[in-house]
Amino acid sequence: MLLNTIEAGAGDRVVLLLHGMMGSAESWWRVMSPLAANGNRVIAVDLPGHGLSPRDERCTVASVADVVVETLVSCAPGASVRGIGHSYGGTVLAAVAERMPVTVAAYVDTACAFTGGADQRALAAEYEVDRRRRTDPAWLRRTRPFYSATDAVVESRAAERFDPMTAASISAGGDVAHELEPGSILVRARPSGFVSDKDAAQAASRGVLVRDIADAAHSVWYSHFDEFCAALPEFLGGN
């Protein structure tokens, strides 16, 4: 199974973008342009059950990582790959990095770990309630005043295409925990509801480069775009 992708730019250097839960490849629409202008081929992926990618009600982080690698090998064989993953997509990126070389990995507001064992159908029902709310761009802008009109349209479209059962399968399996590799980057909202100060300190003690953005939303680039770009000079700081 290959996943749907959106691309920008050209060249031998690939930047892989992996969105968070209930997002889509389009969630990166504003980030893709500066990455492409910096000489990268940018590949944003719709993860299973998101965007235009197939549904998979039995998927796990491991199986999603496998299909991300398969998709990359298909569309960019032999390319030098760097990756940026947000939240759930960051956890997938950590698993991808265990399967293929990722020269630089940036994890956005994620500890890359969560507890499994959820009731899939009950969790899917909760996702469905949230999905329906998010299909309304006006509701998104009321609850996320930092969204532009384009942001709200993009995320409402992601909600329309989102499959709750696929997403719920991720948390219905076993516990998931990936340690961020030394030299990788953790871009964290501060305060963060997803990465505690203790988590960040432990990551830093292992050689992870922790970069906090004060008062940012969980989707850091939506609320603090300039600060987000400045926190990733490895991707946007020149060739």
Rank of each mutant, 00 (worst) to 15 (best):
S87Q: 01
V69A: 06
A159I: 08
A105I: 03
L93S: 13
E227Y: 06
A217W: 03
N239C: 14
F235E: 05
G90Y: 13
A216G: 03
T110P: 00
P137A: 05
A65E: 06
C75E: 09
E26Y: 10
L16N: 08
G89C: 08
W28M: 04
S205I: 04
D151A: 13
P145A: 04
E181R: 15
V176A: 07
E155A: 05
S156I: 04
D46C: 07
V92I: 06
A36N: 14
A152M: 13
R141Q: 11
C112N: 13
G11L: 07
E7I: 07
P164C: 05
H224Q: 08
F235I: 05
D12K: 11
E70M: 07
F194V: 02
E26D: 13
V14N: 02
G207C: 09
G51Y: 07
I185W: 14
S156N: 11
H86N: 12
G173T: 05
R141A: 05
E160H: 08
A36F: 05
A10L: 02
V14C: 07
L236V: 06
S192W: 00
A94N: 03
V104G: 06
I213W: 06
G39L: 08
A111F: 02
G20D: 14
P145M: 02
L17W: 09
N4A: 11
A201M: 00
G11E: 04
V108P: 07
V68W: 04
T135Q: 15
A159N: 12
G78R: 07
R30A: 10
A177E: 15
V210I: 07
A200K: 02
P145S: 06
S184E: 00
S219F: 03
N4H: 13
G237F: 03
T71N: 10
T110E: 01
G20P: 09
P164V: 01
S223L: 06
A95V: 01
L209M: 13
R190P: 01
L72N: 05
T115P: 01
P182K: 11
T135M: 15
L18S: 09
G11F: 11
A118Y: 08
A122D: 05
G174F: 11
G39D: 04
A62R: 15
G51F: 12
D226L: 06
A111I: 01
P34L: 14
R131K: 15
V153R: 14
G51H: 14
D66C: 12
